[in-house]
Amino acid sequence: MGCFGFLKIMMFLFNGIIFLAGAGILAVGIWVKVDSGSILGLLQNLNNGPPELKQVLNVGYLLIAVGAVLLLLGFLGCCGAVRESKCMLLMFFVIILIVFIVEVAGAIVILVFKGVIQTTISQVGVTIVDSIRKDYGKNADVTGLWNTTMTVLTCCGFNNYTDFTGSPFVQNTSLYPQQCCKTGPCREYNATVSNISGCYPALIKVFEANSIVIIAVALGIAALELISMIVSMTLYCKIKAKDS
């Protein structure tokens, strides 16, 4: 098997994985939009939410779009390699190039508008806290979502235990959620000294602790995209030379 055959096999295998990944992401995106009980459904029911929150709620559409693009890429790459189609390989290259440019532009936007993003998160946080004080202990979906989140992340509220002050749960039981205290019944005095952080600070710590992994994954994806472009153009040129 020569270099040309090896490139065809690698192109087929690599894009087969892309095709399967696209199918999975597309399925998740459709599930998010269909499942009214998902976390996005809860966010949509928040009152007086900032306009920026509406963009967050479009993540289901984003997943569907990403999944569809990956499906198309996988199909073009596999069929282009197997059928030795210059048109498909060229389309594959162009789409990968566009995705790569968009990713670079997105990274630049995040770096430049980091302060705006933090402000938006703070505005969303105010709305979330209002929802906690209104529905925690009364709405089973909200209560269950927060209990699960706090248990998994070992955190308390969005900012801290005071987010639950005035909530139906505290009013009815005179207690705070047990996740807000390390031991014993959770009342304000021991919630104050337990120093269990809020879920937002906890999530930030998780991202900071795994920042190297996140950067490595991003660089790995960028490298794969570059390799894909090189391989597709190499095949394109070899097929073109073969046909001429």
Rank of each mutant, 00 (worst) to 15 (best):
F4R: 13
F4L: 13
I9W: 15
F14L: 14
N15M: 11
I17W: 04
A23Y: 01
I25V: 14
L26F: 13
V28G: 04
I30M: 07
I30L: 12
V32A: 06
K33T: 15
K33Y: 09
K33G: 01
V34F: 09
V34P: 13
V34H: 08
I39K: 10
G41W: 12
Q44K: 14
N47L: 04
G49I: 02
P51C: 01
E52W: 05
L57P: 08
N58D: 13
N58S: 12
N58G: 11
L62R: 00
L63V: 01
I64F: 09
I64C: 03
L71D: 00
G74F: 03
F75V: 03
F75A: 03
G77L: 08
C79K: 04
V82F: 02
E84Y: 10
K86S: 15
K86H: 08
M91C: 12
M91P: 05
F92E: 15
V94C: 10
I96V: 12
I96W: 05
L97Y: 07
V99T: 07
F100M: 11
I101H: 09
E103C: 07
E103S: 13
V104A: 15
G106A: 12
A107K: 07
I108N: 08
L111I: 04
F113C: 02
K114R: 13
Q118D: 15
T120D: 13
G125V: 05
V126D: 10
T127D: 13
V129T: 12
V129Y: 06
D130H: 06
D130N: 15
S131I: 00
I132R: 04
K134Q: 12
Y136G: 03
Y136W: 10
Y136R: 09
G137N: 00
K138D: 10
T143R: 04
L145T: 08
T148D: 03
T149Y: 11
T149R: 04
T151P: 09
T154W: 07
C156V: 02
Y161G: 03
T162S: 15
T162F: 05
D163H: 01
G166K: 10
S167E: 14
S167H: 13
P168Q: 04
V170T: 14
N172W: 06
T173L: 09
T173C: 09
L175G: 02
Y176T: 08
Y176H: 04
C181R: 09
K182C: 05
P185K: 08
E188D: 14
Y189I: 13
N190L: 03
V193K: 12
I196F: 02
I196G: 06
I196H: 06
I196S: 06
S197N: 12
S197W: 03
G198P: 11
Y200D: 04
P201T: 02
A202K: 10
I204T: 03
V206A: 10
F207P: 07
A209H: 14
A209N: 15
A209Q: 15
N210W: 05
S211P: 06
V213I: 14
I221W: 03
I221S: 00
I221D: 01
L224W: 07
L226A: 15
L226F: 13
I227D: 08
I230S: 02
S232N: 13
T234F: 10
Y236P: 06
C237A: 03
C237T: 01
A241W: 01
A241D: 14
K242Q: 15
S244N: 08
